[in-house]
């Protein structure tokens, strides 16, 4: 590990200023992903700016019913909050589907959104990776692509975003509060993460020095209160998603009044299934309609064929998982 200096400011503006003054400085929150990358040589910062004194660890309810989650709230505390569990069940379930008890105690809300892909070539500094350096090539396209993207990928990168929480936040239309060099701003979660395009080094729209200060959950619509998260993985616990679904459903008189579908493990960002949602609104809440809607969404899928294992299996896996999850939310057996 290359040497770095350590700073622990008492004001958020000082933390932002420290990064602005040093292009190679990084924020440190829970550290669960960053420490791993420091050891692997994936990142080599000059300075770590500890933000644990400047990010809130409180969850507060605003006058308009918004639930504001401080960026420093531990994942385990977020999942345990009774308001989150009752009003936004997909959010609590998504957190609990990820990592381990120890990691959830350490990982912060802001850091969860900013974790990097688990593409094995990204984590292995001895293999080429466009996400580490635009001068290199993607090793996954011709390599071990089983965990990789089927939607929205580019020639340069087929990595997926690993966060479970972020998928649920997309389904409930969360807003990310950011403090940057020019002041505070709000970014809808659906616009927070990027597709790789020709610059896969950037996972989000944040600029250097932007600090996530809070995540806002808007007052829950009925489809958010009736929501859940379903994750499919290689083992029953403590594994990243092959695919996952955050879904919410409101049915009136047998007809879909409102539906939210966000997919994990399929793209460089949490994938809001807007085509499927549009196809379902106003339609009967039946398996046939659910299947037709997600099939329409996945027409854009471009699975990777690779000698070391491709990912075409994700298309039927997403289809079945979405149908089953929506059936459960409609009152049937999931």
């Amino acid at each position: 590990m290359k040497p770095f200096t350590y700073a622990r400011p008492d004001e958020a503006s000082d933390a932002v200023a420290a990064l602005v003054a040093d292009p190679d400085a990084r924020f440190l929150a829970g550290g669960t992903n960053l420490l791993d990358h420091l050891k692997l040589g994936v990142v080599e910062p000059s300075q770590l700016v500890d933000v644990n004194r400047v990010t809130s660890t409180e969850i507060t309810e605003l006058d308009d019913g918004t639930l504001r989650i401080g960026a420093g709230v531990a994942n385990s505390d977020l999942a345990a909050d009774s308001r989150v569990r009752r009003r936004y069940p997909a959010v609590a379930a998504a957190i609990l589907a990820g990592a381990s008890g120890q990691l959830r105690n350490m990982a912060s809300t802001g850091g969860n959104l900013l974790q990097r892909t688990r593409c094995p070539y990204f984590a292995d500094a001895t293999t080429p990776c466009t996400k580490r350096s635009l001068d290199e090539a993607c090793s996954a396209r011709e390599g071990w692509a089983r965990y990789h993207a089927i939607l929205g990928a580019s020639e340069s990168c087929i990595a997926t975003h690993p966060s479970d929480l972020a998928v649920a936040l997309v389904a409930v239309d969360a807003q990310v509060q950011v403090l940057g060099p020019d002041g505070a701003r709000t970014i809808p979660i659906g616009e927070f993460h990027r597709l790789p395009g020709d610059d896969p080094t950037r996972d989000t729209v944040l600029e250097h020095g932007d600090l996530v200060t809070a995540v806002d959950l808007p007052a829950p619509a009925p489809a958010v209160t009736n929501s859940t998260y379903r994750k499919v993985r290689d083992r029953a616990s403590y594994a990243f998603a092959l695919v996952s679904v955050a879904a919410g459903l409101e049915v009136r008189d047998g007809v879909v009044a409102d539906v939210r579908i966000a997919l994990g493990g399929v793209a460089h960002k949490p994938w809001r299934a807007t085509t499927a949602e549009a196809a379902l609104r106003g339609r009967p809440a039946t398996d046939e309609e659910f299947r037709a809607a997600i099939t329409a969404e996945l027409e854009a899928a471009e699975p990777v064929e690779s000698p070391l294992g491709g990912n075409a299996y994700k298309i039927p896996l997403v289809t079945g998982t979405v149908v089953s999850t929506l059936r459960g939310l409609a009152g049937g057996t999931s």
Binding site: Y6, R8, L28, G31, T32, L35, D36, L48, D50, N52, S100, G101, Q102, L103, N105, M106
Partner: peptide, 24 residues
């Protein structure tokens, strides 16, 4: 951070000491 052998309690909560910077 994959095996849990380094687990300790910090301020009463179980954490992974291998992914924790001492200075923090």
């Amino acid at each position: 951070g994959q095996c849990g052998a380094c687990t300790v309690l910090v301020d009463g909560r179980r954490v992974l000491s291998c992914l924790t910077l001492a200075v923090a």
